[in-house]
Design a protein around this nucleic acid. Structure first.
Lengths: 102, 102
DNA sequence: TGTATTTTTGACAAAATTTTCAAGACAAAA
DNA sequence: TTTTGTCTTGAAAATTTTGTCAAAAATACA
């Protein structure tokens, strides 16, 4: 069983919809080789593609954003021994600064 | 009351120890202007400085790493509406992949 | 098999980020 | 106000990251 990434998720969506790279890349307004690399985690996706993906595949945009962000977070702490502690501290800080509705 | 950042934390340590930028920068093997920028959150610190800071100021390295990482995480989700959800998903995924002692 | 279509690759270009240098600003002391 | 030491600034250099092009490789399928 393989860990799903944002890239592999896009690939799955695309393939399920029988859409070639060429076409999705056109929608996303990027080179198809860039999309190929994103799907294979060789390049990191930009957030600009999220609303487009949401429209093209009719996926809830919030779900996409959460997937996208959590992958970015995980990228920062991969292989870090104290990643979990860091996540918890981040959560605390994030909640707190939100509560002060900055 | 001001939110403490990794940068302002370094500055505090440095000033409490009456150490000039010049000197700490030398220890860290970076330009003093780079350190100045790091302390003022104008640049992001690299992780290489962590063990050195730990030695110079005798701070537990784990605490430093957690501070450093959580700031990196927060940087990714700042101003994001769904940051908290993303953090929780990340936590789940991180715990899970760790449990499979990859 | 051959041909069309799709995907991947790798070198290069472009863009974004970071570091350094050198000068200027600032502060304390006298 | 000059001297001395510290810190900040901003432009340029260096590095890192990302995107593109063109061709090769893989896949589909007639």
């Amino acid at each position: 069983m393989e860990q799903e990434t944002f890239g592999s998720y896009i690939r799955k969506l695309r393939e399920d919809n029988k859409m070639p790279l060429r076409k999705l890349a056109a929608y996303l307004d990027i080179d198809q080789s860039t999309l190929s690399k994103i799907e294979r985690n060789e390049r990191r996706p930009t957030k600009e593609i999220i609303p487009i993906l949401s429209k093209v595949f009719k996926i809830d945009i919030k779900d996409l954003k959460v997937k996208y962000l959590s992958e970015k977070i995980l990228y920062e702490i991969q292989d870090e021994k104290h990643g979990l502690d860091a996540l918890k501290v981040a959560e605390q800080t994030f909640s707190y600064s939100k509560s002060r509705k900055k």
